[in-house]
Design a binder for these strands. Structure first.
Length: 322
DNA sequence: ACCTGTTTAGGTTCTA
DNA sequence: TAGAACCTAAACAGGT
């Protein structure tokens, strides 16, 4: 009989992919972006399994960061000391984890070839490329304001992103401060080599590439360029969404809860909804709790426990204990 | 020397 | 069973 306690549960490998673990870490961060070392830290803090063989899994994790389009690299500004870039989730990778389950993705988030080129070459170019080709119903350019101490990760855009119902007031409350990494103030202050190399003003580049600048932004872009960072704060706000309508970031927040230590953790739910229950998921718990800031993790788990099926679908003990 | 990041390559596991 | 998702190893470049 395996005796419970030391080495029985918490040291076992968590049923989450590296993509899941990384997404958790990023989502959990205030700015929705983390340097590599902090991603390591998050994972090791919560999952004792990953406190060993660090060479192995960290190599795998780095591979995932580079290889998967759902992760984007955000360069540090000169005023931000530290090693490496920040890593964030691509704004459009919203529903990678069906029903909020982090166990297995419903499908791989893959950029189109052209998107990939644009994205890897220059975040900004990607941004406009992206928004040109997917006309979003209510989607306009991200809010832009000028002065911020830190670059922050994307506010979500509309496409592929489900409504955000909550995750308490935690993420919601922060969303007012979030800025799309491709938002003007974040774009211009970084190393957008593609544009800089062209020697053309931003709007010219955009026009040349066939990306019309939205009216409310064009004047701002023009006025800002090349006077980076000189725009008054008041001009910077072009609200697009009610902040509470969407997650502060492109990934679905359904299925998240906080444990007793204030750590945000996923609520594992079946990949496929139980047929008899229909598409009832962790989201239901959030929705039913209405605007209640913090959904009871216990009640959510209760609901979800009824639906757990298959092997790895139960809550990993490390999540409860850490 | 170590960390970060990219890429290739070959393997396993899961799902349609 | 084929393909997708995922894992691991490893070579290598560039930076501190």
């Amino acid at each position: 009989m395996p005796r419970p306690g030391k080495n029985s549960y918490s040291d076992q490998k968590p049923p989450y992919s590296y993509i899941s673990l990384t997404a958790m870490a990023i989502q959990n961060s205030v700015e929705k972006m983390l340097p590599l070392s902090d991603i390591y830290k998050f994972i090791m803090d919560r999952f004792p399994y990953y406190r060993e063989n660090t060479q192995r899994w960290q190599n795998s994790l780095r591979h995932n960061l580079s290889f998967n389009d759902c992760f984007i690299k955000i360069p540090r500004r000169p005023d931000q000391p530290g090693k490496g870039s920040f890593w964030a989730l691509h704004p459009d990778c919203g529903d990678m984890f069906e029903n909020g389950s982090f166990l297995r993705r419903r499908k791989r988030f893959k950029l189109l070839r052209a998107e990939h080129m644009a994205c890897k070459g220059s975040p900004m170019m990607h941004y406009f490329h992206h928004h040109h080709h997917h006309h979003h119903p209510g989607g306009k350019l991200a809010t832009a304001s000028v002065h911020h101490e830190h670059p922050v990760a994307p506010t979500s855009t509309v496409s592929r992103l489900p409504n955000f119902q909550g995750y308490g007031g935690i993420a919601c409350a922060q969303s007012g401060g979030f800025k799309h990494p491709f938002a003007i103030e974040n774009i211009i202050n970084r190393d957008y080599k593609g544009v800089m190399a062209s020697g053309l003003p931003l709007t010219s580049v955009m026009h040349h590439l066939g990306y019309p600048v939205p009216p409310q932004l064009s004047s701002m872009v023009n006025s800002m360029w090349p006077h980076v960072g000189m725009l008054p704060e008041s001009m910077g706000n072009v609200p697009v969404h009610t902040p509470s309508d969407y997650a502060p970031f492109g990934m679905s927040m359904k299925g998240m809860y906080q444990n007793a230590h204030g750590q945000a953790l996923p609520v594992p739910v079946p990949i496929k909804p139980t047929p008899s229950l229909g598409p009832v998921t962790a989201l239901t718990g959030l929705q039913q709790s209405g605007s209640t800031p913090l959904c009871s993790a216990a009640s959510m788990l209760e609901k979800n426990d009824l639906m757990l099926e298959g092997k790895g679908a139960s809550l990993h003990p490390a999540l409860l204990l850490s």
